[in-house]
Amino acid sequence: MFRVFALFALLSILSWTPIQAAEPGLQPSPGRRQALIHMVIQDCGSCHGLTLKGGLGPALLPADLADKDVPGLVATIHQGRPGTAMPPFKSLLSEAEAAWIVEQLRQGFPRDQGERP
């Protein structure tokens, strides 16, 4: 049930922002970056904590991710983790956008400005 709610929430947020899949190695557009920041803080934060310090899901702070494999983190976001509450986001994010999120998480994730892009 929670997975359905989380997916519905993500679809609702992203429905007003067109998915602009970035080519690998390219940065998302400024508007898409803001949408991704909002999604991570609000939607991922529902499990990982609004400050990303952990909750149902593990903490996503730079120190917690420092020893994690970057391709593995990208795969977790993009493909989910079967048997857990972590859903796949491949229908909502490109792999390049998942990589951008990982990069931002490893640097200290930007604050959500609370604005719709």
Results as ranks from 00 to 15, higher is better:
105 L>Q: 06
18 P>D: 12
9 A>R: 14
75 A>L: 01
101 I>L: 10
56 L>P: 00
50 L>Y: 15
63 A>S: 09
57 G>F: 12
75 A>I: 00
9 A>K: 12
20 Q>R: 15
90 K>I: 00
45 G>W: 12
41 I>L: 03
2 F>D: 06
97 E>K: 13
80 G>N: 05
103 E>M: 07
48 H>M: 09
15 S>I: 03
49 G>V: 01
79 Q>D: 15
17 T>Y: 09
2 F>E: 06
47 C>R: 03
32 R>L: 11
6 A>T: 01
63 A>I: 03
59 A>V: 03
113 Q>H: 14
83 G>C: 07
69 D>F: 10
31 G>L: 02
95 E>F: 08
5 F>M: 08
49 G>E: 11
20 Q>V: 07
65 L>Y: 04
64 D>H: 11
43 D>C: 10
54 G>E: 08
15 S>W: 13
29 S>I: 04
60 L>T: 02
34 Q>V: 00
92 L>Q: 14
74 V>P: 00
15 S>C: 04
30 P>A: 10
43 D>M: 10
12 S>K: 13
55 G>Y: 07
4 V>P: 00
46 S>E: 06
6 A>L: 12
69 D>I: 01
117 P>V: 14
94 S>A: 14
88 P>V: 02
102 V>P: 00
10 L>E: 08
77 I>T: 05
63 A>W: 01
16 W>R: 15
1 M>G: 09
22 A>M: 02
48 H>Q: 05
85 A>Q: 13
11 L>R: 07
81 R>V: 14
50 L>Q: 13
100 W>H: 05
92 L>H: 10
29 S>H: 06
92 L>N: 04
60 L>A: 13
75 A>H: 03
76 T>H: 08
87 P>H: 06
13 I>T: 12
106 R>P: 00
43 D>F: 06
85 A>N: 09
18 P>N: 15
47 C>P: 05
106 R>A: 11
109 F>H: 07
53 K>F: 05
99 A>C: 01
5 F>D: 04
61 L>K: 12
96 A>Q: 05
50 L>N: 11
12 S>F: 15
102 V>M: 02
67 D>F: 11
47 C>K: 06
40 V>H: 01
117 P>Q: 10
52 L>G: 06
8 F>N: 07
5 F>Y: 13
4 V>W: 04
70 V>I: 12
50 L>I: 15
84 T>V: 06
53 K>A: 14
57 G>P: 02
59 A>C: 02
79 Q>C: 03
18 P>G: 12
10 L>H: 13
24 P>W: 02
93 L>D: 04
22 A>G: 01
4 V>K: 12
110 P>S: 07
93 L>C: 03
56 L>V: 10
39 M>C: 07
31 G>V: 01
105 L>M: 09
35 A>K: 07
53 K>M: 10
27 Q>P: 01
22 A>W: 05
100 W>P: 01
102 V>D: 02
92 L>W: 07
62 P>T: 00
93 L>P: 01
11 L>H: 11
26 L>K: 15
40 V>C: 02
32 R>G: 07
108 G>I: 05
32 R>E: 11
2 F>R: 08
108 G>L: 05
1 M>D: 09
71 P>N: 04
80 G>K: 09
21 A>D: 12
65 L>Q: 04
46 S>C: 05
20 Q>T: 11
